[in-house]
């Protein structure tokens, strides 16, 4: 079975959407799919977080993307992720070090997080992946 591992290091809408799209599409295609949320990416796993901003370099396009999502032309990143989770093949991991320095507790995270892990654990899960991506 093919496998993809994605490290997500940003909480911005323009990073979360492609990350979720690739992770979920892989899972829907029957692949194993793993996401590791680290640094600012971890903020996206906090309960009630709703990404509204794009990266500062692309502010001028922010309204286009927001409109695409709010009109339903593009699914929200959470809708995408939830469909991936439904397959049972998409795993979502939170970075333990980031949780420590941001003071985020396990109970602050959304329920679809499969575990809190460190770099070595994620690497050993990701090492047999066919595709590895770092999105920040």
């Amino acid at each position: 079975m093919s496998k993809i591992s994605i490290i997500v290091a940003s909480e911005k809408l323009d990073k979360l959407l492609p990350a979720a799209t690739l992770a979920t599409t892989a899972a829907v295609m029957g692949w194993e799919s793993e996401m590791f949320f680290t640094f600012w990416g971890l903020l996206a796993l906090k309960r009630d977080y709703e990404p509204k901003e794009v990266s500062s370099d692309y502010k001028v396009y922010e309204d286009y993307l927001r409109r695409a999502v709010s009109s339903g032309a593009m699914p929200s990143w959470l809708e995408i992720l939830e469909q991936g989770k439904k397959t049972g093949r998409l795993k979502v991991y939170a970075c333990s070090a980031t949780m420590s320095f941001l003071g985020v507790k396990t109970e602050d995270l959304v329920e679809y997080v499969d575990g809190v892990v460190g770099a070595a654990s994620f690497l050993s899960k990701a090492k047999d992946s066919d595709i590895n991506l770092f999105i920040s």
Binding site: T21, T24, T25, V28, A68, G72, A73, M74, P75, I80, Q83, K86
Partner: peptide, 18 residues
């Protein structure tokens, strides 16, 4: 219609599951 990637695929995959 009028849904961009990955909307059509996800909609189809959901329908296939049912």
């Amino acid at each position: 219609r009028y849904k961009s990637c990955p909307g059509p695929l996800l909609a189809l995959a959901e329908a296939v599951m049912k």
